[in-house]
Amino acid sequence: MASRTPYRLVTNLKYWLLAGASAVLGMLLLWVSGLAWFDHHRSFGTLANQLGGLLIASFALATLWDLVGRRSFLAETLEILELKQDIHESGLTAIGTDYRKIVDWDDCLGSATRLDIFAAWATTWRINNQNNFERLLSRNDARIRVYLPDPTDLNCLKSMATRFNYTQTEVRNKINEAIDGYKKLDSNGAATGKVEIYTTPTFRAFTAYRIDNQFVVTLYHHNNDRRGSFPAFTCREGGSLFAFFEEDLEGVLGASTTTKLYP
C-alpha cells in the first residue's frame, strides 16, 4: 500500500543520505590527514583533519536535531497552530484585565447604532460614557437595550446582595438609579423608543455589552474584595463566543420572567 506521507519519506531519505555522506567524508578526511605525505605539508594535513572533524560533528548534531529537536519543534508549532485555530474559531479579538482599556469605548460607542447592555448596574461605566450614549442616540437608526436585575424580586436582590457584598436595600437603590439614568438618555424622558429597559431576576455571572457586531464581556470576582483587575475580552460576530453570548442575551430577552419596564 502506498504511503500517505511520500514527501516526508523523500525528505527524510535525502536528509539521511546527505548526513551519511558527510560522516563518511569526514572520516575519510581524518584518515587522509594522517598519511605520511602530510608530514611534509602540515598546513594541508591540519585543514583536512579539522574539516573531517567538522563534518563528523555536523553529522552528530544533525542526528540529534532529527531525533529530538525537530520533533519537539514540530510539536510546539502544532500547539501554536491549534491555539491560533481555536482563537480564530472562537472569534476572540482582545483579552486583558482592564475593561476600560480592552476597547476604545469612545470609538466603539461613538460610531455604533446598536447597543445591548447586560449588567448589574454598571454605574461607573454608564457615567463615563454619557457623551457617547448621546452621540449614539443622535442617529436615526440607533437603539439601546438595557437588561437589569429586577428590583422587585426578593430572591434576585438577595443573590445580588450576596454577590456584591451589599445590603438588599443598597442593591435595590443601585438598580433603580441605573433605571432612572438610562431613562434620561431617551431625550430626557420623551420616550422616543430608542431606549428600551428590561428587568429580569436572572443572576448576573458576568457583564456583557453587545456593540453592533462585537461583544465586550467582563467577569466578576468571587471573593469579598471587589477591588483590583478582572478578566475582560472582546469577540467578533461569526465566532463561537459571539454566538454563545448572543444566544444567551436573546434567551434572557425571551424569557417569561423578563419584563419590559420602559417605554
Rank of each mutant, 00 (worst) to 15 (best):
A178T: 01
D86C: 04
L17G: 13
A205L: 10
A60K: 06
R70P: 07
L136K: 01
A122R: 00
L35C: 10
R100Y: 09
Q50R: 08
E134W: 04
S256H: 08
D186V: 13
D66I: 08
L29V: 01
F206G: 00
I211V: 14
L81Q: 14
N155M: 15
G53K: 02
T234Y: 09
L148F: 02
H40G: 05
L30S: 08
C235V: 07
L54N: 01
P151G: 04
Y7D: 12
Q214Y: 05
W37V: 00
S138C: 05
K84V: 05
D116E: 14
H221M: 13
F244K: 03
I80R: 02
A205W: 09
Y262G: 03
G228K: 05
R227F: 13
R226D: 15
K194V: 14
E79M: 06
N224W: 07
R42M: 05
N140D: 15
G254R: 08
K158A: 14
A75R: 09
P231K: 05
R70M: 12
T169V: 15
A243N: 10
D225M: 09
R145V: 13
R114F: 15
D39N: 01
L136R: 01
T257H: 12
L18N: 07
M27I: 15
L157W: 10
A36I: 13
I87E: 11
E196P: 09
R71T: 14
N131A: 03
I175K: 01
D180G: 03
T192Y: 11
W125Q: 00
A122I: 00
N129G: 03
S138R: 02
L219E: 10
R227S: 15
A94T: 11
G52P: 03
G53M: 03
L261I: 11
S72P: 03
L35D: 10
A119N: 07
T218A: 06
W121S: 02
D212S: 10
S72D: 14
G91Y: 03
A208H: 05
E79K: 08
K194R: 12
R70F: 15
L18F: 14
F44D: 00
I211H: 06
N188T: 03
T258S: 09
L185E: 02
D116A: 09
N176W: 06
E177P: 00
I144P: 04
T162A: 11
Y182V: 01
F245N: 08
L25S: 07
A255S: 06
A178E: 00
A191H: 15
G254A: 13
N213D: 14
G34H: 03
G53L: 06
H40C: 02
A60F: 15
L253G: 11
T258I: 11
G34Y: 02
A191G: 08
S111M: 06
G239W: 04
F38N: 00
V195K: 06
N224Y: 08
T192I: 14
N224H: 09
S187A: 12
R114T: 15
D153P: 07
